[in-house]
Design a binder for these strands. Structure first.
Lengths: 147, 147
DNA sequence: GCTTGACCCTCAAGTCACTTCAGGGTTTCT
DNA sequence: AGAAACCCTGAAGTGACTTGAGGGTCAAGC
């Protein structure tokens, strides 16, 4: 199987496969006479595993040891649990943050003045810029300015 | 005000300020004789605005025109609305994705075999690696179990 | 007067997970 | 035989910063 076929099977770009190889997540495959990469069924599984992990938001760095573990059937798999727990914690946190963010954005959204001019735009005011008159009184500290 | 003070006021690193300057989001500040950046109160506001936007997940590229808009009191602010609407849409989508992700991760998490060995680990099996041929072949390999 | 340490400066490179580009060679179809 | 579709390598680009190297400046304390 050549790289393009593998890519299509797993639903990933050719460049991504080569990238994973460079990163040491996929073994260097056999090569054809014309130096084309040549893969067996193993590669599909390994790449599928990686993609599955990535779709769960697991980083490449975290996938590395998972792959090792997955290939050592007698090993202790508590590490997998731990990694997942930590990951679930992170995802939960992200979700909380995003929920808060959505509330903030929605609160902003209703906040535009009917004039539809920046002058009266509550959004921009809430975002805390729009100089009212405070910049006028900017007491001039004399600092020598470089050319 | 020197860069360190500004950084502390706004709660951002000195490097980040210099980065924003390079990106053209902050104007080149005045310089002291010894070439130190010297900021007035304006900078605090502008930087605060940027940080507020960033905390809402708005990209630097999107902040650029917002800043321009915020400084042109007579302009039409419908663009701000549009940007926010689009952003809210994105955030909602991200939240849906993350919720799904959390369900998947939790489903995985309960799935480890009582032996706590990779051999029987449902998680890794669900992640779809552990080839049968491999498992059989290496069934006799004694793999040390982590404490 | 001299050292120490906390600041400040610039420029360059590193991070993550890819993607894109430049400049080729090979295979397959017509 | 020529074109399209595939493959190769190596390098650079993305975003939003962070880190590092290699310096200069300034106030306080000895």
């Amino acid at each position: 199987m050549r790289i393009g076929e593998l890519a299509e099977q797993v639903g990933v770009s050719v460049e991504t496969i080569r990238y994973y190889e460079r990163q040491g997540l996929l073994e260097n495959p056999a090569r054809s006479e014309s130096n084309y990469r040549s893969y067996g069924g193993e590669a599909t599984k390994r790449l599928g595993f990686i993609r599955q992990c990535r779709s769960l938001g697991i980083s490449l760095k975290e996938i590395q040891p998972l792959l090792k573990l997955a290939e050592a059937p007698g090993a202790y798999c508590g590490e997998v649990d731990a990694l997942l727990d930590e990951h679930i914690r992170k995802v939960r946190e992200q979700r909380r943050d995003l929920a808060k963010l959505e509330r903030q954005l929605k609160a902003l959204r209703v906040d535009c003045h009917p004039s539809m001019q920046v002058r009266g735009c509550g959004i921009l005011q809430d975002l805390a810029l729009v100089t009212e008159s405070e910049s006028r009184k900017s007491a001039d500290k004399k600092v020598s300015i470089r050319p």
